[in-house]
């Protein structure tokens, strides 16, 4: 009983991971890709757990979701700033104005 449930769990997990990876690579909005990457790290940690490698899962959770995520976010901000050619700190108010935001007025 447990094994069949776990097999189903694995199938859903792998399918979600593949879908996530595909969307992550094909996404045009970089911020969306970063968030998808963080989620990918979290799910990948679950996958390592299922492969009975809890130590790798621990490292994946710490590095994949906890360290690279914030690093990517900080890098995104810096990239955005240099992309605009500005050195001022408080300028990039609507960073996501170019792609995502269409319904909320700013």
């Amino acid at each position: 009983m447990t094994y069949s449930i776990l097999t189903l769990f694995d199938i859903i997990l792998v399918a979600t991971l593949l879908w996530l990876g595909w969307r992550l690579l094909s996404s045009e909005d970089i911020f969306k890709a970063v968030v998808l990457f963080i989620s990918f790290g979290l799910l990948m940690a679950l996958a390592w757990v299922r492969m009975r490698a809890p130590d790798v899962a621990l490292a994946e959770a710490a590095l994949g979701a906890g360290l690279t995520g914030p690093l990517f976010l900080a890098a995104l901000r810096r990239m955005n700033r240099s992309h605009k050619g500005e050195r001022r700190l408080d300028i990039d108010e609507n960073r996501d104005g170019d792609h995502g935001k269409n319904s909320e007025p700013t």
Binding site: I38, L42, P54, A61, G66, G69
Partner: peptide
């Protein structure tokens, strides 16, 4: 459970 602890700590960090 330890991995869950790490999750709880780091998801908020992002």
């Amino acid at each position: 459970i330890d991995i869950a602890l790490v999750f709880a700590l780091l998801a908020a960090l992002a």
